[in-house]
């Protein structure tokens, strides 16, 4: 048997659950409710109103990715550094939350952030007064970072761990200051991991709707919400598919752009 046959089960899976649904999306995006060809769906969503929703989704995803990078990179660097012996334990600790369904974690977060929730009750008992958290963009960002942070830490950690440590020693021997070592040696060598991390965080972040809906009390309306509204509340799978298709193209384009930065895909092999 040829070795390529080993992938047959997955190939079948992919055709059934990826290729066929994509063809449906394509079909519905270019037809109206009676099944006739049309581009009106695209005309409709070209209005500035829809652009604002997309902009909100992109903006939130951008800040989420940035925060994940700012928190995740130093964490990964610390974990990968040679003088830290309990790295495995910490990596497991980072992974543990991922073993639980993200909806449950977000529900838990909701009870933390509510007006009469855990944090506010605590603040009040300390005499500090309540703060409004649930329903704000801040709460949504915290929820997203919490959920997606491991996807940033792991690829960066993998790349840093594989890095030849003698290169750093050489830089130090040649008189580079610690800051210079990081900025001229470690950072450039970890770019593949960073690219992979950014991809893994940004993509799910830009299409999220469960986290944002729960933590914003349904007050922030993102692309994911819009697609759901079209499919279910308005029973209009044509426009729903059109928005999905536009999203898909945007995501493919941004993956393509990121690939330019890391052409041989050495970013921990996660993509």
């Amino acid at each position: 048997m040829k070795r390529s046959w080993y992938a047959a089960p997955y190939g079948l899976w992919m055709v059934l659950f990826t290729v066929v649904p994509l063809l449906f999306v394509l079909y519905y995006a270019f037809t109206d409710s009676s099944g006739a060809f049309t581009v009106n769906n695209f005309v409709k969503i070209a209005s500035p109103m829809y652009g604002l929703v997309l902009w909100d989704s992109l903006r939130l995803a951008f800040f989420c990715t940035l925060l994940c990078l700012l928190i995740g990179y130093p964490t990964a660097y610390f974990l990968a550094s040679r003088d830290f012996s309990n790295a495995q334990t910490l990596v497991v600790l980072i992974l543990v939350p991922m073993w639980m369904n993200f909806l449950l974690r977000t529900y838990a977060m909701m009870t933390l952030f509510e007006n009469n929730g855990v944090i506010n009750t605590l603040l009040e008992s300390l005499g500090l007064g309540r703060i409004q958290m649930i329903g704000t963009e801040g709460a949504v960002l915290v929820g997203m970072v919490y959920n997606f942070l491991p996807f940033m830490v792991l690829p960066v950690y993998t790349v840093l761990k594989k890095m030849d440590y003698s290169v750093i020693e050489a830089a130090e021997d040649l008189g580079a200051s610690p800051i210079r070592v990081v900025s001229r040696v470690v950072l450039p060598m970890s770019i593949p991991g960073v690219v992979s991390g950014i991809t893994m965080v940004f993509m799910p972040a830009v299409t999220t709707f469960a986290i944002s809906r729960m933590l914003s009390s349904g007050m922030i309306y993102l692309v994911g919400d819009m697609i759901e509204d079209y499919f279910i509340a308005m029973n209009n799978r044509n426009v729903g598919s059109t928005i999905s298709l536009v999203m898909l193209v945007l995501i493919i384009l941004s993956i393509g752009l990121l690939r330019k930065v890391d052409p041989d895909n050495s970013g921990g092999g996660l993509w």
């Binding site: 604002l52 509204d229 308005m234 029973n235």
Partner: peptide, 19 residues
């Protein structure tokens, strides 16, 4: 009201996207 869904759809989108 499915025959008037277009009208409702426009209104609903404006409401959902209001900020």
């Amino acid at each position: 009201i499915s025959d008037a869904m277009n009208l409702y759809e426009g209104i609903w989108m404006e409401v959902q996207m209001a900020r």
